[in-house]
Design a protein around this nucleic acid. Structure first.
Ligand code: FES
Ligand code: FES
Lengths: 140, 140
DNA sequence: TATATACCCGAGTAAAATAGTCAAGATTAA
DNA sequence: TTAATCTTGACTATTTTACTCGGGTATATA
């Protein structure tokens, strides 16, 4: 059970963005440099973030990205959803009546994983991007 | 962020075991059949469970496995530990002062993932195997 | 208008992790 | 003895991840 780099980097990059977003758009090159993430990889990630209205882009010289919402309104769950980082603890098709491994009914552990799923997702649901930048600012 | 089959199957198999463990050892063939898990794969999993004293084995005809502890004393975290299903949300070496991506200090998101780690692990720490068999028994 | 700085987008690929298989052996009950 | 069962280490196919790359398009500014 681990996080993919896509989810991790998305949050990392957005936290960076939130910190430098005061007025001007932030180019990916800066984020890449500051966070040590490949520029090409960031491009891929930000394309998704843009499609899901997490960020807004400004093209051309002097361009870059800015947050679409305020950092204190942006939930981690939204970010994860945008980059396809999803929690998947159950094995079966949740909507179907059938269980995993082709069984006719749900398996013994189905409810457990369902509960776990809920437990984990509630973390992402309750966490805002701004909670990251605040601890960052405290240090300054 | 998903569960591996090893962790999932281990819990599934042990829940099955707990249900049929009344007096006699349960052979893997039965578990394999009931839960629809490859026998070979189960063998691999139970070897680990045995090494970590989750189950006890009885060889030979009429043999099989029995739980080492009572199901209400066996935490999911112990099971997961035994089969190497570990939660890994941070990217860096937790003990080192260095951060991920070769940075000299911990990254912006480090504390967040650490918190997440704790959040998830507390679920496994508080959940007992018996909580699975109980819901199962209710159905009967 | 030329140029440099950005974002845009689809494809491709290498490495790692996962999931599962297999063969040969050792024990023990019946 | 024989069949059932655990024991062990090695092996392999598949899938997923984590990138990389090439060739665009838009725009500020000199
Ligand atoms: S996880 Fe849903 S049936 Fe097994
Ligand atoms: S996760 Fe620990 S430094 Fe980034």
């Amino acid at each position: 059970m681990k996080l993919t780099t896509k989810g991790r980097y998305a949050v990392m990059a957005l936290a960076d963005l939130a910190n430098f977003n005061k007025a001007n758009p932030v180019p990916l090159r800066d984020i890449s440099f500051r966070q040590g993430i490949s520029l090409f990889y960031l491009e891929q990630i930000f394309l998704k973030l843009k499609k899901h209205n997490i960020v807004r882009s400004i093209r051309g010289s002097g361009g870059g990205y800015i947050l679409f919402k305020n950092a204190d309104e942006l939930k981690l769950s939204e970010i994860f959803f945008a980059v396809d980082e999803k929690v998947k603890t159950i094995n079966c098709n949740k909507d179907s009546k059938k269980g995993c491994n082709g069984k006719l009914s749900k398996c013994i552990t189905h409810n457990l994983w369902d509960e776990l799923d809920l437990h984990i997702n509630s973390f992402f649901e309750n966490k805002k991007l701004s909670e990251l930048t605040k601890t960052q600012n405290k240090k300054l």
